[in-house]
Each structure stands twice: as C-alpha cells, then as structure tokens.
Simulated scan of single mutants.
Amino acid sequence: MLCAGGPMSDWEVYAVCYADRVARVRADSFIFDDNHDAPHPMEYFVWLLRRGEEVILVDTGYDDAEAQARGRPIRLDPGAALAPLGVTPEDVTQVIVTHLHYDHAGGLHLFPNATLHLQAAEMAYATGPCMCHDVLRMPFTADHVCEAVRRLYAGKVIFHDGEAQVAEGVTVHCIGGHSRGLQAVRVRTQAGWMVLASDAAHFYENVWLHKPFPIVVDLQNMLDGFETLKRLASSRELVVPGHDPLVRRLFPAGPAAHVTRLDPGPQEVISPALFTL
C-alpha cells in the first residue's frame, strides 16, 4: 500500500446525486438473480473530495444532450449540482475518471480547467479492438472518449497503472471487471479509509453478497474486485457503491437535498436485510 508523506489530515467526501432511473428490475443489476423481475431503481452520482482549499472531483456525470440521446433524463446538470458546496465547474482542476462510460465521463467538457486522472488500461480499452463489439461499446459515447483524447493532447491527462497516489490521503486502484481500466478511489476520512467503488460495485448487494453486475468485460476481475474493495477500506461499511439509493439513506444529509456527506461514515447499521427492502 502506498504511504503518504506530509501532514496527515482528513478529507470531506460528498456524494452528489444528479439523476436516477426508477424503471429498472433486479435482472438489470445482478446476474443469476432469483427475483429477477422485482423493481430495482438506481441513482447516479459524482463525488467531491474537499480538504481546505483542495478540491478533487471523482467522475463528471453526463449532460442533458447525452440524457436525451439515451432517453435517460437527468435532474440536475452535474456542474450546477456542485453549487451548494460552493464549487463551480471552473474551480475544478483535478478530476479522477473512474472509467469512460457515458454516465461517469459524459461531462468532461463541463470542467474545462481539469486535469484528468485515468488508468492507461481504460484509454486503451475505450479506443481499442474491444470497441468493435456492440455490446462492449454500448456504455461508451465516442464524443466523451474523444474529449479525453483532446485533453491528453493538451497535456491534461495523468495516466496511472494499477495503484497510484493522486494527493496526500487519496489513492486510486485499478479493479477492472466492469470496464477494463475501472479504478476505485480510496480516501482518508474522519471515519477511516473510505473506498468510493464507483462501478466496481454498483450496489451494496454486489460487494456484500458477491453478486456480479451484468455489464462486464472480465467476470473474474469483477468478483476479485469485491474482495479488493473490502481490503482497501477500514471496514466494509466504508465501501461506498456507485449507484445505490441506500447511500442517501445511510449517510448524513449534506447542504442540499441532492447532496449526501459521506466522511462521517454511515449513520445506520448496514446489513443484507436492507438490500431487499
């Protein structure tokens, strides 16, 4: 594990919900689920890390044009959704891109001053032979990938290969599985080491019960990744899934209805009984 030097201070972590999808069933979330036709909504987040004047954004969401193209409306523009935290899109100079799927990298253009932190494996995947297959290409949008390439040619991409430190108390870890270069983010908080799983675990049920998500390029990497997430966190309660509506129930409210503060830790006991309510 990487060792951090310098002053040891904790980060504030906020989950910012900008969209949701209610018309989903459990078959959309889990492979081999017995209750496959039961409703299973999901929410869409970006995450803001803040320590004093330092700000790091994790993922960018997607904009209204992408929402209309995919028929998946958003409730808030992801850039505007940061306003209750006192952050404008122009303030953001560092973005950790967990992977290049449309709902995580579809707003890159909204943050013009940002340098991107990306796994080299993800750029290779999104621009390589795997994109010849419709089913693997489906979660990507060419314009978003091209924006990442434009940022690269402007000298504003930092590539990582596996595990790396982005800032003191913030590290990234390549998980793969759902996308070839998917990375999770480990953050030191007042509650301990927290892991923002992004799509390494869409829901608590994925990681707690080892139930894989259907969109997958490498199933073994996905399953192994569940254990990696738990190993990286101080406790499995501090593994925060990327799309689970339970996050907003379990953690304290932030400064607006769509903002949840994560760094104090969950305010309710997490157990599998919650997953099927």
Rank of each mutant, 00 (worst) to 15 (best):
M1T: 12
C3T: 11
G5R: 09
G6Q: 07
P7N: 00
V13Y: 03
D20I: 04
D20L: 10
R24C: 09
R26V: 08
S29D: 11
I31K: 02
D33W: 13
H36R: 03
D37L: 10
D37K: 00
P39Q: 10
H40S: 10
E43L: 07
E43G: 01
Y44D: 04
F45P: 00
W47M: 12
E53M: 06
I56A: 04
V58G: 01
T60E: 02
T60M: 00
G61H: 01
Y62W: 09
E66M: 11
A67Y: 03
A67D: 06
Q68S: 09
Q68W: 09
R72W: 09
R72G: 05
P73A: 15
P73R: 12
D77C: 13
G79I: 09
L82G: 04
A83Y: 14
G86Y: 09
V87I: 15
V87R: 03
T88F: 07
T88A: 07
T93L: 08
H99T: 13
Y102P: 04
D103Y: 02
A105L: 01
L110V: 15
L110T: 13
P112I: 15
T115V: 14
L118D: 07
E122G: 12
M123E: 06
A126S: 15
T127V: 13
G128F: 15
H133L: 10
M138N: 07
P139C: 06
F140W: 08
T141Q: 03
T141D: 03
A142W: 15
C146S: 06
C146D: 13
I158N: 05
A167Y: 06
E168H: 07
E168A: 09
V170Q: 02
H178F: 08
R180A: 14
Q183E: 08
Q183P: 00
V185Y: 00
V187L: 05
G192E: 10
M194A: 06
A201C: 10
A201K: 02
Y204I: 11
Y204F: 14
N206P: 07
N206Q: 06
L209C: 12
H210Y: 13
P212E: 04
N221C: 11
M222P: 14
M222C: 11
M222D: 06
D224N: 11
F226A: 01
R231I: 08
E237W: 01
E237V: 07
H243Q: 08
L246P: 11
L246K: 00
V247L: 04
R248L: 07
A253R: 14
A257S: 05
T260F: 02
R261M: 10
R261W: 12
D263M: 09
V269K: 00
I270Y: 02
P272F: 12
A273R: 00
F275S: 06
F275W: 03
